[in-house]
Amino acid sequence: MTGLRVSEITEQLVGLPVADVERHLILATLRQTDGNRTRAAGILGISVRTMRNKLGAYARDGIDVPRPGAMPADSGSVQMRLL
Rank of each mutant, 00 (worst) to 15 (best):
M1G: 13
T2M: 07
G3W: 06
R5A: 12
R5H: 07
R5C: 05
R5I: 06
R5P: 00
R5T: 14
V6I: 12
S7V: 15
I9G: 11
I9L: 15
I9H: 07
T10I: 15
E11M: 13
L13T: 06
G15W: 01
G15H: 02
P17Q: 08
P17E: 10
P17N: 03
A19M: 09
D20V: 15
D20Y: 13
D20M: 13
V21G: 02
V21I: 15
E22A: 15
E22S: 11
H24R: 15
L25I: 08
L25E: 01
L25S: 03
I26E: 04
L27G: 11
L27A: 09
A28V: 03
A28D: 10
L30M: 13
L30D: 10
R31S: 09
R31P: 01
Q32R: 15
T33H: 09
T33R: 10
T33S: 10
D34H: 11
D34Q: 14
G35A: 06
G35V: 12
N36M: 02
R37V: 12
T38A: 14
T38Q: 11
R39T: 13
G42A: 07
I46E: 04
I46D: 05
S47W: 01
S47D: 04
S47K: 01
V48G: 00
R49M: 12
R49P: 01
T50G: 02
T50Q: 10
M51G: 03
M51I: 04
M51S: 03
R52Q: 06
N53A: 05
L55V: 00
G56R: 03
G56T: 03
A57D: 05
A57M: 02
A59I: 01
R60G: 04
D61T: 00
D61R: 05
I63C: 06
I63M: 05
I63E: 09
I63G: 02
D64G: 05
P66N: 08
R67S: 15
R67G: 13
R67M: 11
P68M: 04
P68V: 10
G69M: 13
A70C: 10
A70W: 01
A70P: 03
M71V: 15
M71K: 07
M71L: 13
P72D: 12
P72C: 08
A73S: 15
A73Q: 11
D74S: 14
D74I: 07
G76W: 04
S77C: 09
V78R: 06
Q79I: 11
M80W: 07
R81Y: 11
R81A: 11
R81K: 08
R81L: 13
L83R: 07
